[in-house]
Design a protein around this nucleic acid. Structure first.
Length: 833
RNA sequence: GCCGCGGUGGCGGAAUUGGUAGACGCGCUGGACUUAAAAUCCAGUUGUGGCGACACAGUGCGGGUUCGAUUCCCGCCCGCGGCACCA
């Protein structure tokens, strides 16, 4: 009987006692760093998705160790964050305590899955020994002008009483609680991530920035695309429109950004965002300022969700008396304020070209503003009249594509691409603007008005102002005398202990920054710490970093596609720039595990009652069965539904393996041996490509073959050595059972200390193959023959076949295609009369 | 709207990258064992027709290239994910 719990407990205990999973420090071996995205230690414990990705990296890590690499395969905990604090607010239990309990539970669960993590290297971001270096990195950024404080409109969640990053307030809705987000002015810390979008230089060497660096990475194309999208680089020009107010020229100018400089002769008005600083500046002289002001107030009351609703009508009001002069035409056009223009992008102002921009057209239509065409569609070389008519028709509406310039002064007749070039030159030469690149990416706001995070290491002194905490005073430790009830300010503000501090510069009483850092800051560098997790002086020593970094394989959920991965890359580049690292990208190869859906095809959720509990399955079917099942479910990266019946299949497979290996006598059978070697090759290839489902399938085929053989011949068709070879390829998938059978076969040392088996090329060649015989491309027969036969020999054999013969009657063979060992295709004329 | 990914039996999914479509597993049908059931084992399982050997159709839809297309090309439809008034 295959008693999984007995076997699994036995080996988990033994591995722990033997410290079997410690990282091997052998400089003679090549290193591999296999990393999981570390979990947030929630009270709910592991879910099916954790099991999927951790099993995948475990198989990969075990495989690499067997292939002779020194493998770093650690696991840790992203322990700061809102849920623990919210729980504390509800229950009064300190986050430290709930987090510690959750971590203990997580480790026990991971051990019960047989995951080969080196726990001696584990980290916890809420540990002062860890966040000391999170603070150190903050200071590094600060000292280099990359961390700065500014009064900024931030996304504020009334319900969570905190500031949210843009990314956490998608569509104006709080990521955590779902309530709508409002804008609030607060003094906030920002990291200058925008400084690292483009390439930069380190001692004369050009280092790829966040954008170009993507090209060198083995990442999913969707993830690269999402990052590119998020950075949102657009090339264009900044144009300065001189201003006239009530007929009089003003010293100020309106700067606009455009990617379509070629359409400027069609500009019929200019629009300012409601946040634009020129509006208050001209408040006294704009005739209808009362109306303008009430419009601005109206906009302020809108949530982000309302303001960005694409379906609503565009609104705006003219700034009466204010005119902007188009530098190309000298023409004065009206200026509007409208909230379809964003204050946060470009210059906060646009030139409106209703003939060639959908949004401007919509606005112009509503307010009956003039529409002036300045680009016409190109007549195609091969004149497709339908297309042409369509293009003409479009032209009467909005034509947003590139084309040929019309009514554009000396630029008339040029094509858009060339026109943009020449017009940009003209702008520069005449001092009306310049070429300009704009990004969608904003600097990263990292302040949080929360307790359960890493304190920002800054002190405010009445005499010296903003003073960084000296490195020797790190860490700035979170106090425990706090009240968690949300007040809209960080609970740290009211801690006596925390705030009693002297200015490091002048020694007079001062107070601390009481905001904490976004948890994404803590998780942006943790992969570096695993290289040297107990170092007291440095985040990691240069030697250890040299040894282990960068990460060779990083596996985790696609939900971190943009934020975590971009921030981590940013930190790596900052540390690279200031000499703390010598590589450019942290994660060379990235894969995402696909979401495992509930049995009903919906996302697993408590409310739907379709959540799978790994603990129960480990108990009922075993850790090996659960591991195997999740890997067999389908390709790692696909989204796939759970099927509670499915685990039966892999459980049967494990039972078959368990009973089979006890059979004697053992002797190699030629056919089975050949299949074993094919399987060794297939499993190795599949692991390297993360195709675990087909690797398992290949092992099932082998075991079925052995099982059939044994039933017929009452002997075991593999020698002891080859039986062991099978166990070696089986071991990464089902480590407990493999170790048990390995021991049964008489081995003293763990199977995980033995090398991956080699396959023998000569054994891969079969003695006979099923050759497909096609007639006019259709399969008509299959013939079993020696793959080494020549074309002529094969053809004469085929012509003897009854099924083939009847098709050859009254027909002439026009052509023969011969693919050795695969197929023959006869092309016939006059088939069947 | 833009970017990325996908569409194959009742279900999860295979297919050496242009060469026997449906491997492997679940489920289902029939049989063996059993007083019976479970478990296990054996056989079958894309659809239609035929007792059968076989034949025809078939990888979202419509075309194309090719001796041969799930795979390549053109045009659509549908689904999923990301971004979205970014000028």
């Amino acid at each position: 009987m295959y008693d999984h719990s007995q076997i699994e407990k036995k080996w988990q205990g033994k591995w722990r006692a033997d410290k079997a999973n410690l990282t091997e420090e052998n400089p003679a071996k090549e290193k591999k760093y296999v990393l999981d995205m570390f979990p947030y230690p929630s009270g709910a414990g592991l879910h099916a998705g954790h099991v999927e990705s951790y099993t995948a990296t475990d198989i990969y890590a075990r495989y690499l160790r067997a292939k002779g690499f020194s493998v770093l395969h650690p696991q840790g905990f992203d322990a700061f964050g809102l849920p623990a604090e919210n729980y504390a607010i509800r229950t009064g239990i300190h986050p430290q305590q709930t987090t510690a309990e959750a971590i203990k539970n997580f480790i026990a669960q991971m051990d019960s899955l047989g995951l080969s993590y080196d726990w001696e290297r584990s980290i916890n971001t809420s540990d002062p020994e860890y966040y000391k270096f999170t603070q150190w990195i903050f200071l590094l950024l600060y000292k280099n002008g990359l961390a700065y404080k500014k009064e900024a409109k931030v996304n504020w969640c009334r319900s969570c009483q905190t500031v949210l990053a843009n990314e956490q307030a998608e569509n104006g809705v709080c990521e955590r609680c779902g309530s709508s987000v409002i804008q609030k002015d607060l003094s906030q810390w920002f990291f200058k991530i925008t400084d690292f979008v483009e390439d930069f230089e380190v001692s004369g060497q050009k280092i790829p920035g966040l954008l170009r660096g993507l090209d060198d990475l083995d990442w999913p194309s969707s993830t690269k695309a999402a990052q590119k999208n998020w950075i949102g680089r657009s090339e264009g020009a900044e144009i300065e429109f001189p201003i006239r107010l009530a007929g009089e020229d003003q010293p100020q100018k309106i700067k606009v950004f455009t990617t379509r400089l070629d359409t400027i002769f069609g500009c019929t008005y200019v629009v300012l965002a409601p946040e634009h600083p020129l509006i208050p500046e001209f408040s006294g002289s704009i005739k209808n300022f009362q109306i303008v002001e009430s419009y601005l107030n109206e906009v302020k009351r809108k949530t982000d969700l309302e303001r960005t609703d694409l379906n609503k009508d565009k609104t705006g009001v003219p700034l009466s008396g204010l005119e902007a002069i188009n530098p190309f035409t000298g023409e004065a056009v009206q200026v509007f304020v409208a909230d379809y223009v964003l204050g946060s992008y470009g210059t906060g102002a646009v030139m409106a070209v209703p003939a060639h921009d959908e949004r401007d057209f919509e606005f112009a239509k509503k307010y009956r503003l003039s529409v002036k065409k300045s680009v016409k569609p190109l007549v195609r070389e091969i004149d497709d009249s339908d297309d042409f008519e369509e293009a003409e028709e479009n032209f009467s509406q909005v034509f947003t594509e590139d084309g040929e310039l019309v009514d554009s002064g000396k630029f008339t007749g040029l094509q858009s691409v060339e026109a943009r070039e020449r017009m940009a030159n003209w702008l520069t030469e005449n001092n009306f603007g310049r070429r300009m690149i704009n990004y969608r990416l904003r600097d990263w706001g990292v302040s949080r008005q929360r307790y359960w995070g890493a304190p920002i290491p800054i002190i405010y002194c009445d005499y010296c102002g903003e003073v960084p905490v000296p490195e020797s005073d790190l860490p700035v430790v979170l106090p425990d005398d706090v009240d968690f009830r949300p007040t809209g300010e960080s609970p740290l503000r009211y801690s006596q202990k925390f705030n009693k501090v002297l200015c490091p510069k002048c020694g007079k009483p001062a107070h601390r920054e009481h905001d904490t850092m976004d948890t994404f800051v803590c998780s942006s560098w943790y992969y570096l710490r695993y290289a040297d997790p107990t170092n007291k002086d440095l985040f990691a020593s240069p030697e250890k970093l040299q040894r282990w970094l960068p990460v060779d394989l990083y596996l985790g959920g696609a939900e971190h596609t943009v934020l975590h991965l971009l921030y981590s890359r940013f930190f790596t580049k900052v540390l690279r720039k200031y000499g703390h690292l010598n590589f450019n990208e942290p994660f060379l190869k990235l894969r995402h595990q696909g979401t495992i859906l509930g049995e009903d095809g919906n996302k697993m959720s408590k409310s739907k009652g379709n959540v799978v509990n790994p603990d129960e399955l480990i108990k009922s079917s075993g850790a090996d069965a659960l591991r195997l099942y999740e890997m067999f479910l389908g390709p790692l990266e696909d989204m796939k539904p759970w099927n509670s019946q499915g685990i039966i299949g892999v459980r049967r497979f494990l039972e078959k393996v368990y009973t089979l290996a006890f059979d004697v006598p053992r002797q190699d059978d030629k056919q089975v041996l050949s299949l074993l070697h094919k399987t060794i090759r297939k499993v190795g290839q599949d692991i390297e490509e993360f195709k675990f489902n087909t690797a398992i399938s290949a092992m099932m085929i082998l075991v079925n073959e052995i099982s059939d053989y044994r039933q017929k011949n009452k002997t075991w068709p593999l020698s002891l050595e080859n039986t062991e070879n099978f166990l070696k390829i089986f071991a990464p998938f089902a480590p407990h059972l493999a170790e048990e059978l390995w021991e049964y076969l008489g081995n003293q040392k763990s199977i995980f200390l033995s090398p991956w088996p080699q396959f023998d090329e000569s054994l891969l060649i079969s003695e006979s193959v099923n050759l497909a015989v096609q007639i006019n491309g259709k399969l008509r027969a299959t013939i079993n023959l020696d793959p080494k036969l020549s074309e002529a020999e094969v053809l004469s054999l085929i012509k003897e076949d009854e099924n083939v013969k009847k098709w050859l009657l009254d027909a002439e063979i026009v052509k023969t295609i011969f693919v050795p060992g695969r197929l023959v295709n006869l092309v016939l004329k006059n088939v069947g009369k």
